[in-house]
Design a binder for these strands. Structure first.
Lengths: 215, 215
DNA sequence: CATTGCTGACTGAACGGGCGGTCAGTTACC
DNA sequence: GGTAACTGACCGCCCGTTCAGTCAGCAATG
């Protein structure tokens, strides 16, 4: 295999395997042969299997946070921002598929407060930041009277569940497009079609940095 | 340990372990010592670790389906039925906790079309039936003009995600009660407080069969 | 240019622990 | 005494991790 940056290739193939089979069912030996490398090389670069998973998480959340910052910078109204976040989360299932599936499958490894080194702590920090971003959007929308909620944090968790759970049923080659799904979800949540907001949100998210172009 | 029906005890403790650690990280030996049994006994009753997981799934979905049938029989309006299903799904996180967590964690094992014997097929059948129940409720509500959706199946998946994803953050001893969470979700979805429907739904679900009283 | 020595990617064999599963035999109950 | 629950020792595989060593590139040296 080529010399430079096997790291990225390892990360990518590892994520693909975990996305498909799950972490525990993924053997480093399989990843190695898929890359034409030896098992030893993978450990040489990352030290342990767990660290490898950690790096996939950090990279994924880095991308989502960059995207979110871009949305925040380019859309003003809370409704548009919220719609954009919904679309972004769903689009990641299609365009950043391996990492999305990996992180959503193995989410729980970094949710509890169990210790786990500085890496795990960092990942928890990223998650908290992302969550807070959406909570703030919901709160702002409620304050502006543009959307209604009895509890912004719960509504944010509602949104995360609605979008993230799609990993269990969404298939890129399925009949429903991400744009259609986002449209339905937005309508469910906001009570009416929001086609203009949706169109703007889609346009902004598509231009956002940190996105992996559809494979 | 007592002689009769170790089966149920094994199933229960196994589910508790999987709920806490995950399937792959659960060792049958640990379950055995927790029960004061030997590993051999567990295999003697269930044949394999996988079969054990399967039985937890079957029992869990059996309970949810019994509950759903009861709701269907005791509530007429689609809105009330939908509210009841939301409450039931959330309440299971509290009252049927070990099985809920186990099944939601390991959901994916029975979602793909990968083969897996008659048991896996049976479980897929249960899941399909449950999904269809909710899709039908949404469709009926839309037809009656009582709720709006651009796509009943997507809206049903929205509801499942919203409720099921709670496994990643809901804690029985947390600040928010299941009733509060259900109230917020229902409001998010239906656009306004639905306190009377929620109260009726809660009352019906609490009387439903197949429920495990809060531990 | 040839030599030397360093660095870091890479290898492959071996290790060792964990764990699901097997089985021949024992115990307890009807 | 037949049946079913139960045991505990054992097997064998899988897989993450270790490690001593190879090889390619490269910079400094003369």
């Amino acid at each position: 295999m080529v010399r430079p940056s096997s790291r990225d290739a390892i990360l990518r193939v590892f994520a693909e395997h975990v996305a498909e089979r799950g972490y525990a069912e993924t053997a480093l030996a399989d990843v190695a042969v898929a890359l034409g490398l030896s098992k030893g090389t993978i450990l040489h670069h990352f030290g342990s299997k767990e660290a490898l998973l950690g790096e996939v998480h950090v990279a994924y959340f880095g991308r989502r946070l960059a995207e979110a910052d871009y949305v925040r910078a380019h859309l003003e109204s809370p409704v548009e921002r919220l719609v954009a976040m919904i679309y972004a989360l769903l689009a990641a299932h299609r365009d950043d598929r391996a990492a999305s599936l990996t992180c959503l499958r193995e989410l729980v490894r970094y949710s509890g407060d169990e210790l786990g080194g500085t890496l795990a702590e960092h990942i928890r920090g990223q998650r908290t930041r992302y969550t807070d971003l959406v909570v703030d959007i919901v709160r702002a929308g409620a304050a502006a009277g543009e959307l209604h909620t009895a509890d912004p944090r719960m509504t944010a968790l509602h949104v995360f569940g609605m979008c993230n759970y799609a990993w269990t049923w969404y298939r890129p080659d399925g009949p429903e497009s991400v744009e259609h799904i986002a449209g339905v979800f937005v309508r469910d949540l906001l009570g009416e079609e929001r086609d203009t907001e949706l169109a703007r949100a889609i346009a902004v998210v598509r231009r956002a940095p940190g996105r992996v172009p559809a494979g």
